[in-house]
Design a protein around this nucleic acid. Structure first.
Lengths: 349, 349
DNA sequence: AGCAGGCGTGACAGCGCTGTCAAAATGGGT
DNA sequence: ACCCATTTTGACAGCGCTGTCACGCCTGCT
């Protein structure tokens, strides 16, 4: 009950079990001990409510038993799903998870300046950051495996989806429905476009080029993330074009959702007047009946953690190995053929 | 570059700076040293890329510099927002965040059996679990402050919103709009109803009682979380009543969203035919134009972390203190007056 | 009975840091 | 120039654990 009581140490267990500390250590680590001693030690440990001090053991083994992750935020579908999936894997490996949340540029600079993970983790998972050359280099000599998730970093182990292919599928779906004026809505933050964001734009462009649809830069609009006003402006820019789009491909579901809500607010029916397509296939895409491109953050998380564990055990194993995961188009009710007028126009084209 | 190189130690820094290890330690901890020595040490540390080993220092200080959190999942709006808000606070206190994700009953049993956080953290934040007496008792002698978030635990520091008041506001809003047949949709998981869930039901019942509307247990439906089929069944049960509800108050936004999508799928217009009201006011409530009751997980996270930090510094400070945060009704387009027929009926009642 | 071989166990040092205490350096007043 | 009060620095032990090594004991053999 008393909260300030001293935690029992391995020596306490040893005394109670009538053996040496070494033996307790061996028992707890699963090394060979006689069954008689093992049971005595285990009982003593249970009675004392003993939990080993990672600090002390890592001091001597050099292993911290910690997997560190660097994330821009946890307040996102992607991070949540990816990190949740790590749980069982890490527990299986007897590791704990420490999270560095680095939301803005100042915190980011501080993180790279101090590199607090150094010496305090066995591996680092870096999520969805667009790192500069210097930052990557800095992580290189962190002295532990570093895995990049949702970004492709040359020569370093990375796990990501094929954003280009996904965006191409999405765009082709719209083209196949008969659209030719297809907008691309881009998210931009203080650091500029993210890796995925740029890749998805490339996929969009590739699909248009394949279909001999000329690129129109007026159809590419940008907005800050989760910014209602920015979305409204971006949609406004599209609606005020001489020839407005009949479909909008948003680089993320959240942006797509925001666009749908903006369009509905001005009585533009989705998908009758304008089709909207997202990317991510978050849970809410289903509620919104939003067509989207699915990716699996939990698969990415697991793949990254497995890579990390492999590299911890054998630093030379697969350095620089990349894992590229697939995407899947999930057609739903927010995409349909363009209005008849446009279809005529296109056909006669 | 070489990943297996030995990390520099405090002694290395001392040698380079031409001082003793003690002095380096003092410098790095911000204790008083001459300005000349301070700059020499800091330069040496920078040159060697020195990062202190928490393991070693916590071994002697007894402080781990770690805030542990116990969460059922990270894949939820609430956890994401709450945990993200901890970042700056913890960094300010020089602490790291380690997360224990305990998704199911087996993992939960294992966590309480082994209590891995013991000795490896300075405080524990427990999120939205409904703990049994034994579990709470077990946490009591963890030897560190334990703060409960989004649940009210008798005699222990807890941070939560006033769910009863929030649900009452929500229900009154529907009553004020003219509804009298108001359903309550409840989420139930393997462990039964959550604390919040039960509290919200109480608020719903209180509001009905206040308005002299008789309770009808057929109007209270349950479904597992994030279960499309369960939601469909629950909605089906309501629609097949002799006197179906004109409004549904869902205990969570996600459930509300799912209900709206189920209703729309069968051409029942929201809010014209049935009003739907959620709880949480997640981001997506705005996209869906869903009326909801707002709570702030980031405020809760911050309040909890502050409490924890205070208790770490002075274990006797405010034990058992509770922080109750407010909720706010956010009326949007998913709630409206009931259809005229019902209104007549009610008026003449 | 005596001895090699093997397994199980204990003694001990040391991982990298901090807290204590004593020693050295500094500065101000006479 | 000297002394005392004060600040600044260094030596050293020890936090709780693990890895190494050596020792004791039990088997099974000659």
């Amino acid at each position: 009950m008393s909260p300030a009581q001293r935690h029992p140490t391995l020596a306490d267990v040893a005394e109670r079990a009538g053996v040496s500390p070494s033996t307790v250590s061996r028992t707890l680590r699963g090394l060979s001990v006689s069954t008689k001693v093992r049971s005595r030690v285990e009982e003593a440990a249970r009675e004392l409510n003993f939990a080993i001090s990672r600090q002390a053991s890592s001091l001597v083994t050099g292993r911290t038993g910690v997997m560190a992750v660097l994330v821009p935020t946890l307040d996102s579908w992607f991070m949540g799903a990816a990190l949740s999936s790590l749980g069982p894997l890490l527990r299986g490996a007897g590791m704990e998870l420490t999270v560095y949340v680095v939301p803005d540029l100042a915190e980011r600079a501080a993180f790279f300046e101090r590199l607090p993970a150094r010496r305090n983790a066995d591996a680092l998972l870096v999520f969805s950051f667009d790192l500069s050359e210097e930052e990557t280099a800095r992580l290189d000599d962190l002295g532990m495996p570093v895995i990049y998730i949702s970004q492709h970093v040359e020569g370093r182990p990375s796990v990501y989806v094929d954003d280009v292919a996904g965006a191409r599928k999405a765009t082709r779906h719209l083209i196949n429905l008969g659209h030719r004026r297809i907008a691309f809505a881009h998210t931009v933050n203080a650091r500029g476009f993210t890796f995925s964001s740029r890749e998805r734009l490339v996929g969009y462009q590739q699909a248009l080029t394949e279909a001999d649809i000329p690129l129109d830069h007026d159809l590419i609009v940008t907005t800050p993330p989760r910014d209602k006003r920015g979305t409204t402006q971006a949609v406004g820019n599209l609606l005020s074009l001489r020839e407005p789009p009949t479909a909008i491909f948003a680089e993320q579901d959240e942006l797509a959702a925001s666009i749908v809500s903006t369009l509905r607010a001005v009585q533009i029916e989705v998908p009758q007047r304008i089709s909207v397509l997202g990317f991510d296939d978050q849970l809410m895409a289903e509620w919104l009946d939003l067509s989207s491109v699915a990716q699996s953050p939990s698969d990415m998380g697991r793949a990254a953690a497995e890579l990390a564990l492999a590299l911890i055990n054998d630093p030379e194993s697969d350095r620089g190995r990349h894992v590229v995961l697939p995407t899947h188009l999930i057609p739903r009710g927010s995409t349909a053929a363009p209005p008849a007028s446009h279809r005529e126009q296109e056909r006669s084209n």
